[in-house]
Structure formats: structure tokens, C-alpha cells
């Protein structure tokens, strides 16, 4: 198990590698959620954000997805050491220029639609058979695939939301608590599929246990608010 250190960031940038740079980011609402947070996520790497509840993990993911703005600091994509998108503090970088696959903590599924329709809502180019096959790999059988997700258990919804994010063609895959409510068997299925289908993308997920991060081969990034 490996944790991110300050050297990783400097070495990564100096070695002219590509990735996502988060520098001195501060976000505050009525209280400070993130304070001077910095990290460097190497392109194609898997990272696990860890920290107590309320430490700002979800806020950081939302910032990376372009759904939040920072009060100060910056978020940049670096390509071969050169900053490509380097907005000013508080600027929400253009999410249209980078594709982001996001597995939201609250699933955010269309409750009256089935699992296949939910996935095809985001990725219409995928055919039904392929989606059913992948849902099968996640332990959701074909019969269940055609039920409205309102009838799904919490774990089934979670896996459907995960697959939707995974199949979306993206540069960055953000998974907010992808293992929430999953038993060990289903958690392993999710991890297997993630590692099999991540296709060189940068993956950043939030996790509560070291074992989860370890199973994904993720570098741990501590977020302490």
C-alpha cells in the first residue's frame, strides 16, 4: 500500500509526466471544507481519497468534475509537464473539454427506468447485450436488468451507477464511495471490472478502508479538510 507524499508531486511534475494537478485549493461555504489541499494525480493512476466523514472528499471530487469552484488555488491538467488547462482561482474548469465519468454517492438513477436504460441514458452508443453482459459480471442477472431500478436493492443501484460511470468514455473516472453498501463478493466484482475496463484512465475514488484501496492497487491520498 502506498501513500502520496509531497515528493510525488514534485517528482511527477519535474519528470514531465502527464496528470492532474491540484494546487493549494481552498473551498469554504459557511465553514472551511478544504484548506490548501494539494495533490498530483498521474495520468492512468488509481488513487483513493481517504479521510474522516466531512473531510472534503466528495467536495474534492466535485471540484475535479467541474461541479464546484475553488475559493483559491488551482486545478490543472498537465501534459508532458506543460499545464494545459490552468484556470485562475475560483474558475470552474471547462468540463466540456475533458470527459469525466462520475459515480455519484447518491446513485442518481432514473428510478422508473431499468438498469440498461439508465446506463444507455449516459452512453447510448453501447448496445443492450453488452450492458446486460457487464451487469451480469457485477452480479445482476438478465431478468433483474429489465426491472425498474426503483425495485433494486441499494447494492444493485450502486453497481448500476458504477457501471454507468465506467462505460462513459472519459479521461478521468471519479467514483464517490463505489463500495458503499456492497458485500465482499460484490465489492470484488466491482474492483475486478474496474481494473479490467479502466483503459488507461486516471481513477480517483473515495474509500473508508485501507483494504478497499489496497484491493484496487490505489495510491492513498489523505484528505483532512
Amino acid at each position: 500500500m502506498r501513500e502520496m507524499s509531497g515528493n510525488d508531486m514534485e517528482n511527477g511534475i519535474n519528470a514531465s509526466k502527464s496528470g492532474l494537478l491540484v494546487l493549494d485549493v481552498t473551498i469554504a461555504y459557511d465553514h472551511v471544507v478544504l484548506e490548501k489541499f494539494s495533490a498530483w494525480f498521474k495520468e492512468g493512476g488509481v488513487y483513493a481519497l481517504m479521510g474522516p466523514s466531512g473531510s472534503g472528499k466528495t467536495t474534492l471530487l466535485r471540484l475535479l468534475a467541474g461541479l464546484e469552484t475553488a475559493d483559491s488555488g488551482r486545478v490543472c491538467w498537465t501534459e508532458n509537464g506543460i499545464e494545459k488547462l490552468c484556470p485562475e482561482a475560483g474558475y470552474m474548469y471547462d468540463i466540456a473539454s475533458k470527459q469525466v465519468g462520475f459515480c455519484f454517492q447518491e446513485d442518481r438513477l432514473l428510478e422508473n427506468r431499468n438498469a440498461v436504460e439508465n446506463i444507455r441514458f449516459a452512453v447510448p452508443e453501447y448496445n443492450q447485450e453488452e450492458i446486460i453482459r457487464l451487469l451480469g459480471e457485477l452480479g445482476i442477472d438478465e431478468q433483474e436488468c429489465h426491472k425498474p431500478v426503483a425495485d433494486f436493492s441499494g447494492g444493485m443501484k450502486r453497481r448500476t451507477a458504477f457501471l454507468r460511470a465506467l462505460l462513459y468514455p472519459s479521461d478521468l473516472l471519479l467514483l464517490d464511495e463505489p463500495f458503499k453498501g456492497l458485500d465482499e463478493e460484490n465489492r470484488d466484482r466491482v474492483i475486478q471490472l474496474l481494473l479490467k475496463r479502466k483503459d488507461g484512465r486516471t481513477v480517483i475514488l473515495t474509500a473508508h478502508e485501507d483494504a478497499e484501496a489496497d484491493a484496487c492497487g490505489a495510491v492513498i491520498v489523505r484528505v483532512s479538510g
Binding site: 468534475a65 461541479l67 468540463i95 466540456a96 470527459q99 469525466v100 465519468g101 462520475f102 455519484f104 447518491e106 442518481r108 432514473l110 427506468r113 436504460e117 441514458f121 449516459a122 452512453v123 447510448p124 454507468r164 462513459y168
Partner: peptide
């Protein structure tokens, strides 16, 4: 609003958003 945000993240086309969401 959460579903609308989800649709924006996945760049869902307007006709599809209108019909499904």
C-alpha cells in the same frame, strides 16, 4: 436538480434529457 447535474456530467443530449428526465 441532482439528476439534472448527472445528465450534465454525462453530456446527455437535449432531446434525450427532455424525454427521459
Amino acid at each position: 436538480r441532482e439528476l439534472v447535474e448527472m445528465a450534465e456530467i454525462f453530456h446527455v443530449s437535449w432531446p434525450r434529457k427532455l424525454r427521459r428526465l
